[in-house]
């Protein structure tokens, strides 16, 4: 991609990170760490890759996105808002009574959300179902999903992986947000799913390993994946809490909102980064 496009995506992702912090702080709860780690991937998909229309969120031929790690909803909401599906002002209502921004994605409440998720392991199966439907009925759309690295400890993920390759669902691309941390600690300590690439390969998928914060690498992976005749897992090495110094690689920021002081510091850091673009 050209320099200008890359810069623009980086700037958008920075705004998305700021939105995530605003939302989680306003909600006084939520999951900032894993939202910040997958922010670049989701930004890329909605701003550069997917066939979608914010004015017609349900257009039948759209590409689908399933946030299998549903707790990263603040990232998805921020991207949808920045992309024009709804006003970024709404992000301050995250998790509030009556808000269409539920704690986990709700396809019937939020414009642009293609699947309700939140219970780990189920999103990838739903994405597989969408991909199967697309192939079966001859609809040309693609399906993208983002899994957590803790999430892939769920057995259902591997049931879905087995099925997807058996049915040759080459219209499915699954990102694994490999940030190395889950709620209770490092994935290697809790119950590591490593080696992630070898597991997906054993289940009949192609795999591509990338730096999940580098837009060139994200784009190259998607381009390559689209040429595969198999489902593809993009193993994205990421930093949990990316973009906020004190949240980076810190287990404690999985599911905790910043207090007012921490919020101000996070906002300051991200606004400084934004001003530099």
């Amino acid at each position: 991609m050209d320099k200008q496009t890359k810069l623009s995506l980086e700037k958008t992702a920075c705004k998305v990170r700021l939105d995530i912090i605003h939302g989680v702080h306003a909600a006084k709860s939520g999951h900032p760490g894993g939202s910040l780690s997958c922010a670049d991937i989701i930004t890329y998909l909605y701003f550069k890759e997917m066939n979608i229309d914010p004015k017609e969120p349900k257009k039948p031929d759209r590409d689908r996105f399933v946030l299998s790690k549903g707790h990263a909803a603040p990232a998805l909401y921020a991207v949808l808002a920045e992309r024009g599906f709804f006003s970024p002002d709404e992000l301050f209502n995250l998790r509030h009574i009556g808000s269409f921004l539920q704690g986990h994605p709700d396809m019937n409440k939020t414009p642009g959300v293609d699947m309700s998720t939140g219970s780990l392991g189920q999103g990838i199966s739903a994405a597989v179902g969408m991909a199967l439907s697309g192939k079966h009925f001859g609809d040309g759309f693609r399906v993208y999903t983002v899994l957590g690295d803790g999430e892939i400890e769920e057995g259902q993920v591997w049931e879905a992986a087995m099925f997807a390759s058996n049915k040759k669902l080459s219209n499915l691309i699954a990102f694994v947000d490999l940030n190395g941390l889950q709620i209770d600690g490092m994935i290697d300590e809790v119950n590591s799913a490593r080696p992630v690439d070898k597991k997906f390969e054993a289940f009949g998928w192609d795999t591509i390993e990338i730096d999940g914060h580098d837009f060139d690498e994200i784009e190259a992976a998607v381009k390559k994946a689209k040429k595969s005749d198999k489902p593809v897992a993009v193993i994205a090495n990421t930093v949990k809490g990316k973009g906020v110094s004190f949240m980076e690689n810190a287990v404690g920021w999985h599911g905790k909102a910043p207090n007012d002081e921490q919020y101000e510091q996070a906002v300051k850091e991200l606004e400084t980064a934004l001003a530099a673009f």
Binding site: P60, R64, V66, M107, D114, M115, G121, Q122, G123, S125, A126, A127, V128, G129, M130, A131, L132, S133, G134, H136, F137, D139, G155, Q156, E159, A160, M162, F163, N166, K167
Partner: peptide, 27 residues
């Protein structure tokens, strides 16, 4: 051609069905 066997994986099958239905089709 209109039948898909999920194998012995009922949990996966239910969520796959949800994905199919989410594309506006019946299952």
């Amino acid at each position: 051609d209109r039948f898909y066997n999920c194998g012995i994986a009922e949990q996966n099958m239910m969520s796959i069905a949800a994905g199919i239905a989410a594309t506006g089709k019946r299952v």
